[in-house]
């Protein structure tokens, strides 16, 4: 019983982290039509920057906020000065994001070294929550909560605000959006910053569960890719559902069939591609 509860919570917590990662990835892909291959690296950068911030300010949430802002600033610069120079050349943009991902990975290795750095769970969340004789790890519950709140806020942002309406218009038909006077290129920067901030903050919030280590970037990136393939490009609901599907499959796969956890990730992807190539909730063909 305890095993199943713990694994379910682990799945949900991982799903929550994956949502923070893949929501931005999906929005960037939907709006800018590029796969941002730095996204895994931004997640890792967030985790490492968080580690350093935590040495100065011993508060995880403040570190997540500051780290998210720093990573957002980095993402904004990347979009403004490098991707902008390659406007219209989608393949070039993707290759540049891959190059930047390599640079970030090596940079982190130089600055923070090769050993995994654990991120301490906040003192007050360490004690498990005991309900009806079953222990629930508190921090994971909090992570799930954060993911759900983020999902709701993002949903409201997309559905209820002017900014969200403009982003949706850009995702659906960029040329028409431009023609009616929506500043699409400014939206690019905003969405890129937003996505980077979510990834960076996700890295720190995930720290107590995953810790910060070299290789975290290219471990998270394929998960984000698979989630977006599953859920559909540019769809928040798709990213949300896809994150939890992958969270469950990956966690239970690792626990029950550790050797083949990665192969099992294949299965939902193949299924979706075979029967619904635009993804579960996608409106765009990739």
């Amino acid at each position: 019983m305890q095993f199943w509860i713990i694994q379910t919570l682990n799945s949900l917590a991982l799903g929550g982290l994956l949502f923070l990662l893949s929501a931005g990835f999906s929005l960037i892909f939907g709006l800018m039509r590029i796969a941002n291959l730095t996204h895994g690296a931004l997640f890792m950068l967030g985790a490492y920057v968080g580690v350093t911030i935590l040495r100065v300010v011993p508060d995880l949430w403040l570190a997540a906020l500051l780290g998210g802002l720093l990573v957002a600033a980095f993402g904004g610069l990347l979009e403004r000065f490098i991707l902008r120079a390659l406007a219209g050349n989608a393949l070039g943009q993707v290759l540049v994001t891959l190059g930047v991902a390599f640079i970030i990975a090596d940079f982190c290795l130089i600055v923070w070294g090769g050993d995994p750095i654990p991120v301490p769970t906040p003192e007050y969340l360490r004690r498990p929550l005991i309900v009806a004789g079953v222990a629930f790890p508190t921090y994971r519950l909090v992570v799930i909560g954060i993911a759900i709140v983020t999902a709701i806020v993002l949903h409201l942002l997309m559905e209820r605000t002017r900014l969200g309406a403009m982003i949706r218009a850009g995702v659906d038909d960029m040329q028409m959006a431009r023609a009616v006077g929506i500043p699409v290129s400014r939206l690019f920067t905003i969405v890129f910053c937003l996505g980077s901030a979510l990834a960076g903050a996700g890295g720190i919030i995930g720290g107590p569960i995953l810790s910060a280590y070299p290789g975290l970037d290219f471990e998270m990136l394929p998960l984000a890719l698979i989630i977006v393939i599953l859920g559909g490009v540019g769809s928040l609901v798709g990213a949300f559902v896809g994150s939890f599907i992958i969270g469950f499959i990956y966690t239970f796969g690792s626990a029950l069939l550790p050797d083949l956890a990665y192969v099992i990730l294949f299965l939902p992807m193949i299924f979706v591609i075979a029967f619904r190539p635009r993804g579960l909730f996608g409106r765009l063909g990739t």
């Binding site: 796969a35 989608a90 393949l91 394929p222 890719l225 698979i226 393939i229 192969v263 990730l265 294949f266």
Partner: peptide, 14 residues
């Protein structure tokens, strides 16, 4: 295009 790139990347990462 990029969908192809993502799929090949995901497959090889697996």
């Amino acid at each position: 295009g990029l969908g192809f790139l993502m799929l090949t990347l995901a497959l090889s990462q697996v």
